[in-house]
Design a binder for these strands. Structure first.
Lengths: 353, 353
DNA sequence: CTGAAAGCGCTTACAG
DNA sequence: CTGAAAGCGCTTACAG
């Protein structure tokens, strides 16, 4: 049970004593506040350097009267997919951990199928003064505009789930879509034979979503690079109700021989449902995301593999990165790719998003 | 930029005011220190309840002069396997995060093949006064004795990597070995055919290590439960140098047809090396742990799957759990199983231990 | 440009 | 059994 007194005490007090100035002046230098002559500033900085002084975050947050405000702007959870529940959970978790450090978080939600809703919410955010923003930049153009306005106001923005590489964000936290597709392709190697045929089923109301296209690219490139000759068909379904999906699937399954279906997003459960209804049990199935609807079919063996990229952690880390940057003033990594996890019927119980 | 003043202030001060006592008395009640009459205690507790008061951890650690001391007792990193580097990394990471909260960590290491070294180190720990201990209870009997002595002294002990279910620890953080074995078996289903034969290779100087036996059990039970009829052979190699291992493998590969090898620990790279040397490329290989030596063969395709259970996180969480318990006084989960991750040549780059 | 003093929400001697 | 006061390492007005 050591006592603190034994330690060498290096705080603002000691710095002030050595520099022969008041504590307030030291504080001004440490926090880059103006109103200090170059001369005293240099003197103090030298001492800070020499002492290898690190501010005590506890004391700082305790003494500071300022509450830091973060805004979160992500898609709302829809009936159709509850994917965004997971990042939200991570965000809420992070929130509870840092609330006592004087940080508050406001959450804003937009409709994934409605650009307008994004614009409305993003304007609300700009109307308030936030110290940091966590954003899912689904709509590329609108997000870029929003971010450049934030940048003008020096508000750091963290991207999760998908990236806009050319937009000046603080960082990106999320999947490497290309390699996720590549992994799916690699797993196919274990599921099918040389002559077998693959069907990519893209179920999405939004046309040619970057998200899915990039995965598809990684998927196809893997086959190309590993010189596999399996036929790869593609089916685009622009609706997200089971009836319509089932109809389209029926059509293609009646006319084509298919041995494996790859669904590059979370709607793989629709295909599983179709397989079950039509008693198709000799076709392998790979998809994305750890959702209850998907796990149900994974358990039964209808879905072979789910690929998942820690959606909860994306939300959690997103907030924590803002905290690192704004509060602790730490440098943060520009890109943080999530692991690409493989979920099967035998390990899903232990999976932590 | 809200100000704190806007918030309702509920601290020791307000409680003291309402209870009409001094702050010190409130402090005594909050921290269960003695020297308070039942009457005032009840009164203060009622107010705490009513206000739903949560102590401010920042202020507590800042004001407290006491440094909390944790001890870590894990195997040393040997040339033969660098597995324990990973948990150690997690421990060091956690350490750096909580050092400014007035917590110090001392690390002790024992030799996995030497019970005596464990006894020596554990005695050193008992000679000092620690507030919490992180332990890898490899040696069941000796660990149990050590833990019961700790329990007598009310020192909480957290287990990582392997559990002693009947020993009174604060909690266990690590793999569910049985299900890890089951997952390996499940993956086999994708790698081999009905007639194919499986060889379990156990490489370990220690006899019948609980660790490996439990995985083997999960592995075999899966085959039994899923009514697969593949032959399962077993080879025990009690040495950990390549020459001896290679000799044993050669012997069995000369006399038996084997289509898949399962190594229930991290020494799978020895088998991979053997395959490479003897140009065996039609035998599938599954093993454990994300080690450089293993990844090398995963990349080349010699190893098909590695199963990994977040060793870094085990160390990190172990320390953080002690922190949660000792500093934040939070309840901790009795058992925290790690996810069972599947690593392939296509996702290892993104894996985070 | 600089300083003295109060205060953040706790804990810790010390006094009674 | 209880209280008044100092202090943890910072920040924040306010005064000069």
């Amino acid at each position: 049970m050591k006592k603190k007194e034994e330690k060498e005490l290096v705080g603002v007090k000691e710095i002030a004593r050595r520099a022969n100035v008041a504590i307030a002046t030291v504080d001004r230098v440490i926090n880059n506040r103006k109103g200090v002559s170059e001369k005293t500033k240099a003197k103090i900085n030298a001492i800070i350097e020499e002492l290898n002084y690190k501010p005590n975050i506890l004391a700082r947050r305790l003494a500071s009267k300022e509450t830091l405000m973060f805004a979160v702007l992500i898609p709302s959870v829809s009936k159709e997919t509850d994917y965004w529940e997971a990042p939200l959970e991570g965000i809420t978790q992070a929130q509870s951990e840092i609330v006592s450090y004087g940080i508050e978080i406001d959450k804003y939600f937009f409709d994934q199928n409605d650009t307008q809703s994004f614009l409305i919410e993003s304007r609300k955010i700009l109307d308030k003064k936030y110290h940091g923003i966590l954003l899912a930049p689904m709509f590329a153009k609108e997000s870029a505009e929003f971010v450049s306005e934030c940048t003008r106001r020096s508000i750091p923005v963290v991207f999760i789930n998908s990236d806009l590489p050319d937009t000046p964000s603080l960082c990106y936290i999320g999947p490497d879509l290309y390699h996720a597709g590549g992994l799916a392709a690699h797993l196919c190697g274990y599921l099918i034979e040389e002559e077998d045929r693959i069907l990519i089923v893209n179920i999405s109301e939004i046309d040619n979503h970057r998200h899915f296209l990039r995965k598809e690219e990684g998927f196809k490139d893997y086959f190309y690079e590993s010189k596999k000759s399996n036929a790869i068909l593609k089916l685009d379904i622009k609706e997200t109700n089971y009836k319509a999906i089932s109809k389209e699937l029926r059509k293609i399954f009646n006319s084509e021989r298919v041995n494996l279906v790859f669904v590059p997003n979370s709607r793989v459960f629709y295909v599983a449902k179709f397989f079950e209804e039509y008693e198709i049990d000799n076709v392998r199935l790979i998809g994305f995301e750890f959702l209850a609807k998907n796990i149900k079919y994974l358990k039964k063996g209808t879905i072979d593999f789910l690929i998942c990229q820690k959606p909860i952690e994306q939300g959690y880390r997103g907030i924590m990165t803002l905290y690192q940057h704004c509060v602790l003033k730490n440098r943060v990594k520009k890109v943080h790719y999530m692991p690409i996890d493989i979920i099967t019927k035998k390990n899903y119980k232990f999976y932590s998003n």
